[in-house]
Protein backbone atom coordinates (compact mmCIF):
# COMPACT_ATOMS: atom_id res chain seq x y z
CA UNK A 1 0.00 0.00 0.00
CA UNK A 2 1.29 3.43 -0.90
CA UNK A 3 1.82 6.01 1.80
CA UNK A 4 -0.94 8.24 0.39
CA UNK A 5 -3.41 5.32 0.37
CA UNK A 6 -2.50 4.60 3.95
CA UNK A 7 -3.26 8.16 5.05
CA UNK A 8 -6.56 8.05 3.10
CA UNK A 9 -7.66 4.94 5.00
CA UNK A 10 -6.60 6.60 8.20
CA UNK A 11 -8.64 9.75 7.56
CA UNK A 12 -11.67 7.65 6.53
CA UNK A 13 -11.36 5.76 9.82
CA UNK A 14 -11.21 9.05 11.67
CA UNK A 15 -14.43 10.25 10.02
CA UNK A 16 -16.18 6.97 10.89
CA UNK A 17 -14.96 7.22 14.45
CA UNK A 18 -16.29 10.78 14.82
CA UNK A 19 -19.67 9.75 13.38
CA UNK A 20 -19.83 6.72 15.69
CA UNK A 21 -19.02 8.91 18.69
CA UNK A 22 -21.75 11.37 17.67
CA UNK A 23 -24.29 8.54 17.34
CA UNK A 24 -23.24 7.15 20.71
CA UNK A 25 -23.71 10.51 22.47
CA UNK A 26 -27.12 10.90 20.79
CA UNK A 27 -28.23 7.41 21.80
CA UNK A 28 -26.94 7.80 25.34
CA UNK A 29 -28.58 11.20 25.91
CA UNK A 30 -31.97 10.06 24.65
CA UNK A 31 -31.87 7.02 26.94
CA UNK A 32 -30.46 8.91 29.92
CA UNK A 33 -32.99 11.78 29.86
CA UNK A 34 -35.80 9.49 28.77
CA UNK A 35 -36.80 11.71 25.80
CA UNK A 36 -40.08 10.58 24.23
CA UNK A 37 -39.72 9.24 20.67
CA UNK A 38 -42.11 11.82 19.15
CA UNK A 39 -39.74 14.60 20.30
CA UNK A 40 -36.39 13.02 19.51
CA UNK A 41 -36.06 9.40 18.44
CA UNK A 42 -32.90 7.51 19.40
CA UNK A 43 -30.42 6.15 16.88
CA UNK A 44 -31.73 2.61 17.32
CA UNK A 45 -35.28 3.91 16.65
CA UNK A 46 -34.04 5.37 13.36
CA UNK A 47 -32.34 2.14 12.33
CA UNK A 48 -35.46 0.13 13.21
CA UNK A 49 -37.68 2.50 11.21
CA UNK A 50 -35.35 2.45 8.19
CA UNK A 51 -35.12 -1.34 8.16
CA UNK A 52 -38.88 -1.75 8.40
CA UNK A 53 -39.36 -0.09 5.00
CA UNK A 54 -35.94 0.43 3.44
CA UNK A 55 -37.01 0.08 -0.21
CA UNK A 56 -39.52 2.90 0.30
CA UNK A 57 -36.88 5.15 1.82
CA UNK A 58 -34.26 4.36 -0.82
CA UNK A 59 -36.72 4.93 -3.66
CA UNK A 60 -37.59 8.35 -2.33
CA UNK A 61 -33.99 9.21 -1.59
CA UNK A 62 -33.11 8.27 -5.15
CA UNK A 63 -35.92 10.49 -6.44
CA UNK A 64 -34.64 13.49 -4.46
CA UNK A 65 -31.07 12.73 -5.48
CA UNK A 66 -32.10 12.62 -9.14
CA UNK A 67 -33.99 15.91 -8.85
CA UNK A 68 -31.01 17.52 -7.15
CA UNK A 69 -28.53 16.21 -9.70
CA UNK A 70 -30.68 17.47 -12.58
CA UNK A 71 -31.07 20.88 -10.92
CA UNK A 72 -27.33 20.97 -10.35
CA UNK A 73 -26.49 20.16 -13.97
CA UNK A 74 -28.98 22.73 -15.30
CA UNK A 75 -27.61 25.38 -12.92
CA UNK A 76 -24.04 24.57 -13.95
CA UNK A 77 -24.72 24.90 -17.66
CA UNK A 78 -26.75 28.10 -17.33
CA UNK A 79 -24.36 29.52 -14.73
CA UNK A 80 -21.20 29.02 -16.79
CA UNK A 81 -22.94 30.34 -19.93
CA UNK A 82 -24.07 33.47 -18.08
CA UNK A 83 -20.60 33.97 -16.61
CA UNK A 84 -19.04 33.82 -20.08
CA UNK A 85 -21.61 36.31 -21.33
CA UNK A 86 -20.80 38.60 -18.40
CA UNK A 87 -17.05 38.73 -19.10
CA UNK A 88 -17.59 39.06 -22.84
CA UNK A 89 -19.30 42.44 -22.87
CA UNK A 90 -19.49 45.32 -20.43
CA UNK A 91 -23.16 45.93 -21.19
CA UNK A 92 -24.09 42.30 -20.56
CA UNK A 93 -22.06 42.47 -17.37
CA UNK A 94 -24.14 45.37 -16.02
CA UNK A 95 -27.47 43.93 -17.14
CA UNK A 96 -26.99 40.34 -15.99
CA UNK A 97 -25.23 41.11 -12.72
CA UNK A 98 -27.85 43.71 -11.73
CA UNK A 99 -30.74 41.42 -12.57
CA UNK A 100 -29.09 38.46 -10.93
CA UNK A 101 -28.31 40.34 -7.72
CA UNK A 102 -31.87 41.67 -7.53
CA UNK A 103 -33.31 38.27 -8.30
CA UNK A 104 -31.06 36.47 -5.87
CA UNK A 105 -32.26 38.64 -3.02
CA UNK A 106 -35.85 37.52 -3.47
CA UNK A 107 -36.20 34.52 -1.16
CA UNK A 108 -36.79 31.85 -3.76
CA UNK A 109 -38.60 29.69 -1.25
CA UNK A 110 -41.33 32.30 -1.59
CA UNK A 111 -41.51 31.60 -5.32
CA UNK A 112 -41.85 27.85 -4.86
CA UNK A 113 -45.69 27.80 -4.66
CA UNK A 114 -45.82 29.72 -7.97
CA UNK A 115 -43.72 27.09 -9.66
CA UNK A 116 -46.34 24.51 -8.76
CA UNK A 117 -48.91 26.69 -10.57
CA UNK A 118 -46.62 27.15 -13.58
CA UNK A 119 -45.09 23.71 -13.89
CA UNK A 120 -47.39 21.34 -11.97
CA UNK A 121 -46.49 18.88 -9.24
CA UNK A 122 -44.06 16.64 -11.14
CA UNK A 123 -40.28 16.68 -11.07
CA UNK A 124 -39.89 19.72 -13.33
CA UNK A 125 -40.83 22.47 -10.82
CA UNK A 126 -38.45 20.94 -8.25
CA UNK A 127 -35.59 20.90 -10.75
CA UNK A 128 -36.42 24.51 -11.66
CA UNK A 129 -36.40 25.70 -8.04
CA UNK A 130 -33.16 23.87 -7.28
CA UNK A 131 -31.44 25.24 -10.38
CA UNK A 132 -32.67 28.74 -9.62
CA UNK A 133 -31.21 28.71 -6.12
CA UNK A 134 -27.92 27.13 -7.20
CA UNK A 135 -27.19 29.26 -10.26
CA UNK A 136 -26.23 32.49 -8.50
CA UNK A 137 -23.13 31.24 -6.74
CA UNK A 138 -21.94 29.55 -9.93
CA UNK A 139 -22.23 32.75 -11.97
CA UNK A 140 -20.59 34.96 -9.35
CA UNK A 141 -17.62 32.68 -8.66
CA UNK A 142 -17.03 31.79 -12.31
CA UNK A 143 -17.05 35.48 -13.25
CA UNK A 144 -14.41 36.13 -10.60
CA UNK A 145 -12.34 33.25 -12.01
CA UNK A 146 -12.68 34.38 -15.62
CA UNK A 147 -11.80 37.96 -14.72
CA UNK A 148 -8.72 37.06 -12.70
CA UNK A 149 -6.76 35.67 -15.65
CA UNK A 150 -3.17 36.96 -15.50
CA UNK A 151 -3.12 40.13 -17.69
CA UNK A 152 0.44 39.32 -18.74
CA UNK A 153 -0.65 35.91 -20.04
CA UNK A 154 -3.42 37.70 -21.96
CA UNK A 155 -0.72 40.03 -23.32
CA UNK A 156 1.30 37.02 -24.38
CA UNK A 157 -1.76 35.60 -26.14
CA UNK A 158 -2.26 38.93 -27.89
CA UNK A 159 1.37 38.92 -29.04
CA UNK A 160 0.45 35.64 -30.73
CA UNK A 161 -2.62 37.24 -32.35
CA UNK A 162 -4.92 34.84 -30.52
CA UNK A 163 -8.65 35.16 -31.27
CA UNK A 164 -10.87 36.31 -28.37
CA UNK A 165 -12.56 32.89 -28.44
CA UNK A 166 -9.17 31.16 -28.22
CA UNK A 167 -8.21 33.36 -25.27
CA UNK A 168 -11.49 32.42 -23.60
CA UNK A 169 -11.15 28.67 -24.08
CA UNK A 170 -7.39 28.34 -23.61
CA UNK A 171 -6.55 31.01 -21.07
CA UNK A 172 -9.59 32.28 -19.18
CA UNK A 173 -11.64 29.09 -18.79
CA UNK A 174 -8.85 26.77 -17.60
CA UNK A 175 -7.75 29.48 -15.18
CA UNK A 176 -11.31 29.82 -13.84
CA UNK A 177 -11.71 26.09 -13.12
CA UNK A 178 -10.60 26.31 -9.46
CA UNK A 179 -13.24 28.99 -8.81
CA UNK A 180 -15.82 27.06 -10.80
CA UNK A 181 -15.28 23.89 -8.80
CA UNK A 182 -15.43 25.82 -5.54
CA UNK A 183 -18.80 27.19 -6.67
CA UNK A 184 -20.03 23.77 -7.81
CA UNK A 185 -19.37 22.34 -4.36
CA UNK A 186 -21.60 24.99 -2.74
CA UNK A 187 -24.11 24.64 -5.55
CA UNK A 188 -24.77 20.97 -4.71
CA UNK A 189 -26.24 21.92 -1.35
CA UNK A 190 -28.24 24.79 -2.87
CA UNK A 191 -29.69 22.40 -5.44
CA UNK A 192 -30.64 20.00 -2.66
CA UNK A 193 -32.38 22.80 -0.72
CA UNK A 194 -34.33 23.68 -3.86
CA UNK A 195 -35.37 20.08 -4.47
CA UNK A 196 -36.63 19.65 -0.89
CA UNK A 197 -38.47 22.97 -0.94
CA UNK A 198 -40.13 21.86 -4.16
CA UNK A 199 -41.20 18.61 -2.53
CA UNK A 200 -42.58 20.53 0.46
CA UNK A 201 -44.96 22.63 -1.62
CA UNK A 202 -46.28 20.00 -4.00
CA UNK A 203 -45.74 16.40 -5.02
CA UNK A 204 -46.10 12.83 -3.86
CA UNK A 205 -42.49 11.68 -3.83
CA UNK A 206 -39.11 12.39 -2.34
CA UNK A 207 -37.54 12.87 1.07
CA UNK A 208 -39.09 16.34 1.43
CA UNK A 209 -42.51 14.83 0.83
CA UNK A 210 -41.82 12.15 3.48
CA UNK A 211 -40.90 14.85 6.01
CA UNK A 212 -44.13 16.79 5.24
CA UNK A 213 -46.39 13.75 5.64
CA UNK A 214 -44.51 12.52 8.71
CA UNK A 215 -45.05 15.90 10.34
CA UNK A 216 -48.78 15.58 9.63
CA UNK A 217 -48.94 12.34 11.63
CA UNK A 218 -46.40 13.34 14.35
CA UNK A 219 -44.11 10.57 13.09
CA UNK A 220 -40.84 12.18 14.16
CA UNK A 221 -38.84 9.01 13.62
CA UNK A 222 -39.90 8.87 9.99
CA UNK A 223 -38.97 12.52 9.48
CA UNK A 224 -35.57 11.94 11.07
CA UNK A 225 -34.78 8.98 8.84
CA UNK A 226 -35.54 11.21 5.83
CA UNK A 227 -33.34 13.98 7.27
CA UNK A 228 -30.41 11.62 7.79
CA UNK A 229 -30.83 10.38 4.22
CA UNK A 230 -30.87 14.00 2.98
CA UNK A 231 -27.58 14.55 4.75
CA UNK A 232 -26.15 11.47 3.06
CA UNK A 233 -27.42 12.61 -0.38
CA UNK A 234 -25.83 16.04 0.06
CA UNK A 235 -22.53 14.56 1.20
CA UNK A 236 -22.49 12.09 -1.70
CA UNK A 237 -23.02 14.90 -4.24
CA UNK A 238 -20.35 17.03 -2.61
CA UNK A 239 -17.80 14.24 -2.82
CA UNK A 240 -18.77 13.51 -6.44
CA UNK A 241 -17.80 17.08 -7.32
CA UNK A 242 -14.68 16.81 -5.17
CA UNK A 243 -13.72 13.65 -7.05
CA UNK A 244 -14.27 15.33 -10.43
CA UNK A 245 -12.18 18.26 -9.25
CA UNK A 246 -9.30 15.91 -8.52
CA UNK A 247 -9.56 14.56 -12.07
CA UNK A 248 -9.88 17.91 -13.84
CA UNK A 249 -7.50 19.91 -11.69
CA UNK A 250 -4.51 17.68 -11.00
CA UNK A 251 -2.41 20.82 -11.44
CA UNK A 252 -4.15 22.85 -8.74
CA UNK A 253 -2.29 23.54 -5.50
CA UNK A 254 -4.88 21.57 -3.50
CA UNK A 255 -4.38 18.39 -5.56
CA UNK A 256 -0.65 18.42 -6.27
CA UNK A 257 1.01 15.13 -5.50
CA UNK A 258 4.53 16.46 -5.00
Amino acid sequence: MKLSDYSKVQSALQVLLILAAFAAVWQFSVTLFDVPEYLLPSVTDLIREFRSDWTFYLQNALYTLETTALAFVVASIIGVALAIAVVSAKLVDNVIMTLLAAFHNVPKVALAPLFVIWLGTGQLPKVAIGAMIAVFTIVVDTVVGLKSADPEVINFARSKKAMPLTILTKVRLPGALPNLFGALKTATSFALIGAVVGEFVGGEQGLGYIIMTAQGSFDTTRAFVAIVLLGLCGTALYYCVDFLEGIFLPWHVAHRKT
Binding site: D150, V153, F156
Partner: peptide, 11 residues
Protein backbone atom coordinates in the same frame (compact mmCIF):
# COMPACT_ATOMS: atom_id res chain seq x y z
CA UNK B 1 8.60 37.33 -27.00
CA UNK B 2 10.16 36.43 -23.66
CA UNK B 3 8.59 38.25 -20.73
CA UNK B 4 10.05 39.15 -17.36
CA UNK B 5 7.92 36.48 -15.72
CA UNK B 6 7.90 33.08 -17.41
CA UNK B 7 4.07 33.12 -17.80
CA UNK B 8 3.89 29.35 -17.93
CA UNK B 9 0.36 28.21 -17.14
CA UNK B 10 -0.12 25.74 -14.30
CA UNK B 11 -2.62 23.54 -16.12
Amino acid sequence: FVFQRDLLVDW
